[in-house]
């Protein structure tokens, strides 16, 4: 909320003219909860796909299909409210970090320091990429250039 001193003499009614269409706080909280769930489903999907052994193990294969549908559905619901770039970034980040941390727990794998380091670089890269892959917001730079308090 910034007040331009040049328009301070304008009628008070003008200040309410430009109100953004923002979802109610409870809707946003719910969307974020669904997004976190989608991330958790994506971790489950990654682990189940690995456990399916090329879809030769029936139980893991079925779990993989269920998680695939769940993660897709939850993500699409969350992205109705949350910005697509931010939503994808959080979802992809949770999925990749979760899979990297949990696959050594679930399977006979090790997470060496070198592996963890390079995985962190890759995951940071893709999260950054998802965040960068959205329309520029000119009002953000404008706000930074013109602080609210003169």
């Amino acid at each position: 909320m910034s007040v331009d001193t040049a328009t301070a003499t304008a009628p008070a009614s003008a200040t309410t003219a430009e109100r953004q269409d923002v979802a109610a706080p409870s809707d946003r909280a719910r969307a974020w909860l669904v997004l976190l769930l989608a991330g958790a489903f994506e971790v489950g999907y990654a682990l189940a796909v690995g456990g399916s052994e090329g879809f030769t193990v029936l139980s893991w294969s079925l779990v993989a299909v269920v998680f695939f549908l769940l993660t897709l559905y939850a993500l699409s619901v969350a992205l109705r409210t949350i910005d697509v770039g931010i939503g994808y970034a959080v979802w992809a980040g949770i999925g990749a970090v979760g899979a990297a941390l949990l696959s050594p727990v679930v399977f006979d794998e090790t997470l060496s320091a070198a592996k963890a380091l390079w995985l962190a670089v890759i995951i940071a890269g893709v999260v950054w990429l998802k965040l960068a892959d959205r329309p520029e917001r000119p009002d953000d730079s404008d706000r930074a250039a013109h602080p609210a308090h003169p």
């Binding site: 999907y45 990654a46 682990l47 796909v49 690995g50 456990g51 399916s52 052994e53 090329g54 879809f55 993989a64 695939f68 992809a92 999925g95 990749a96 899979a99 990297a100 941390l101 949990l102 696959s103 050594p104 679930v106 399977f107 794998e109 997470l111 592996k115 995985l119 890759i122 995951i123 890269g125 893709v126 990429l129 998802k130």
Partner: peptide, 25 residues
């Protein structure tokens, strides 16, 4: 998903998944 599961027969799950999702990104 099927192709990823074939790749994960050789790759560690965490590594293969991260490579897959990131290169696709």
């Amino acid at each position: 998903t099927y192709l990823l599961s074939r790749a994960l027969l050789t790759f560690d799950v965490g590594v293969g998944y991260a490579l897959w999702t990131s290169v696709a990104g």
